[in-house]
Design a binder for these strands. Structure first.
Length: 314
DNA sequence: CGTCTTTGACCTGCGC
DNA sequence: GCGCAGGTCAAAGACG
């Protein structure tokens, strides 16, 4: 019964589903995880593909190995309704993060959230469009406290649309993976309630590697080197060095990698920002985010490219 | 010249 | 059927 207490129960008043568009649900817990009021790191990952639904959830503590791991699994063959799917999914254990909430609040990072439940109760639903069937793929959304709207995640994206969102002063941007064989899309929008939070929704799964050696883009060159450390080949089942982040990837979910990479990118930005704001603050845990990353040259690389000039140290 | 962003038009689903 | 909102297309322009 203990494990059930961590499941989002629609009848449990301590769990709530934040309103969001379409069929996306952000589960949070009023007593501990109010995304609008707290800035906690609660890193966890999801593995999700067409034949198997599973999730690895890990509480993250800066100085300790992951203390909480939960796994939920299911099968698309079971024809679960959306509610059933999400109720099978175990969100991060609030207690695992609460022990370090003071430190984590300083990191100024929000993470994230899984989701996905498909419209109309079907796992994959099809929509006829000009004689063709369009398959709506599973979606994953997460929230990141970031000043950067479009979080880098190791893939190249082409923006194909932007729309104003009702009841929100911030537009929603639509991106598509630039790989012609890849159908992954993502939406990026800012929370209307907390403009510092970026909501990114991925749809689909990459069928290719991240960008290892991109074109002559300064950012991507650094990023490629960065991801070269972190992103295993899709065929690899070795443990990812992302364990440094308290994350663990299961199977081959490139979407999961995208999410985690974006989260780390954001974490790096926020960490840089944090250091810039309080350069003399040495009270951070020695295993804070940036210190767990492979060394990057000072002011260069990922941080140097992501962080707006105004945020950088001179 | 290739790539990417912008942006108005268009398409689709849904509620009334 | 109509209107609204979300999502997508594609032409035009910007940029390196």
């Amino acid at each position: 019964m203990d494990s059930d207490s961590n499941k989002p129960d629609p009848h449990d008043p301590t769990w709530s589903s934040l309103p969001s568009s379409d069929s996306t649900f952000f589960f949070t817990r009023d007593d501990d995880n109010d995304l609008h009021n707290t800035h906690k790191i609660t890193d966890f990952t999801w593995s999700y593909n067409s034949s198997d639904l599973s999730a690895d959830v890990e509480g993250y503590q800066p100085s300790d190995p992951p203390t909480t791991t939960a796994t939920a699994s299911g099968s698309s063959d079971s024809h679960l309704l959306p509610g059933d799917q999400t109720s099978d999914i175990i969100p991060p254990n609030p207690s695992a993060s609460s022990s370090s909430s003071e430190d984590l609040a300083d990191k100024n990072i929000v993470v994230l959230f899984k989701i996905e439940s498909n419209i109309k109760g079907s796992y994959d639903y099809e929509v006829k469009k000009k004689g063709q069937k369009r398959i709506r793929q599973p979606r994953f959304a997460f929230m990141t406290k970031s000043e950067v709207d479009h979080l880098e995640d190791g893939y190249r994206w082409r923006k194909y649309g932007q729309k104003a969102v009702k009841n929100s002063p911030f537009p929603r941007s639509y991106y598509r993976c630039t790989n012609s064989k890849c159908t992954v899309k993502k939406r990026v929008e800012r929370s209307s309630e907390d403009p510092s939070i970026v909501i990114t929704t991925y749809e689909g799964q990459h069928c290719h590697h991240t960008i290892g050696f991109p074109r002559n883009s300064g950012f991507l060159s650094h990023e490629g080197a960065f991801l070269g450390h972190f992103a295993p080949p899709m065929s690899s089942h070795h443990q990812s060095p992302f364990l440094y982040q308290g994350m663990q990837f299961s199977h081959d979910s490139s979407v999961t990698r995208s999410i985690a990479q974006a989260s780390i990118s954001s974490a790096s930005v926020q960490q840089a920002h944090h250091q810039q704001q309080a350069p003399s603050d040495t009270t951070d845990s020695p295993s804070s985010v940036s210190q767990q990353l492979p060394p990057l040259s000072s002011g260069e690389g990922l941080l140097g490219d992501i962080v707006p000039p105004g945020m950088r140290n001179p």
